[in-house]
Every structure is written in structure tokens, then in C-alpha cells.
């Protein structure tokens, strides 16, 4: 784990579930999961944000284009929506979401609109 800037830590995929469990046991709440695909860097960035009272922490995972990320929906139920959103809009594969909606969250006609075709 490496601190990039205030309240923002870079983690490995192997560390993710450990971090999530620590947060859950300390009764932190999941604020959001944000997926982005900065074009210049050509990889996904998944940011998990947690808050407890006024404390705030973000954990960032760098994911290559063809890589999967583990689902945290078994720990935090509210992650279901964020993870389905990531798959539907960005095409990022999330393993074993507790309720996998199979791209039926927003039911859009366009496939993964946030990623351009050549980037896939």
C-alpha cells in the first residue's frame, strides 16, 4: 500500500479484500466505487472510497484492460450497483457479483459507452 496523496492509497489486487474486510469490521461505510479509463494511461483505475464519521479514505486499484477485479458485493451489499455499473458502462469484468444484472442495470442500447472501440 502506497500513499499517492492525502487520503488516497494505491493498492494491489491481492490487498483489496483484506483492506475491504478491515474497513467493514471497523464499521466504515462504502461511499462509492469509481471506475475510470484515462486514455493516456490505457488502463482502468478503480477507486473505492470509504468514510467513517468525518474520516475519509480512498483506495485505488490499477487494472489492465483484460484483467478481472474481485467483487466486494459479498462484504458491502451496496457495491452491487457500482459493480454492475462498471461492467455495463466500462466493460470492466467483475468476478462473481452477488447479484449480477448482466448489463441490465441501465438497459442501454450502446455497448460500454465510456470506452472507445479501439481501446477495448
Amino acid at each position: 500500500m502506497q500513499e499517492i496523496k492525502k487520503d488516497m492509497y494505491l493498492i494491489d489486487k491481492a490487498e483489496l479484500l483484506q483492506v475491504i474486510m478491515e474497513k467493514k469490521n471497523a464499521l466504515w461505510r462504502l461511499c462509492q466505487i469509481c471506475c475510470s479509463f484515462p486514455k493516456a494511461e490505457n488502463h482502468y483505475e478503480v477507486t473505492y472510497s470509504f468514510a467513517n464519521g468525518y474520516d475519509f479514505a480512498n483506495y485505488r486499484l490499477i487494472v489492465e484492460k483484460d484483467e478481472d477485479v474481485p467483487s466486494i458485493s459479498r462484504v458491502y451489499k451496496s457495491a452491487i450497483y457500482y459493480e454492475n455499473e462498471m461492467h455495463e458502462l466500462w466493460g470492466l469484468n467483475v468476478e462473481n457479483i452477488k447479484v449480477d444484472l448482466h448489463d441490465k442495470l441501465y438497459r442501454i442500447d450502446v455497448e460500454t459507452p465510456f470506452i472507445e472501440k479501439e481501446d477495448k
Partner: peptide, 9 residues
Amino acid sequence: GEDAIRRGA
């Protein structure tokens, strides 16, 4: 209160 946190309200 605990549910509110677990569910991220």
C-alpha cells in the same frame, strides 16, 4: 444505525 452504515445510507 448499523444497517444504515452497512447499506451506505
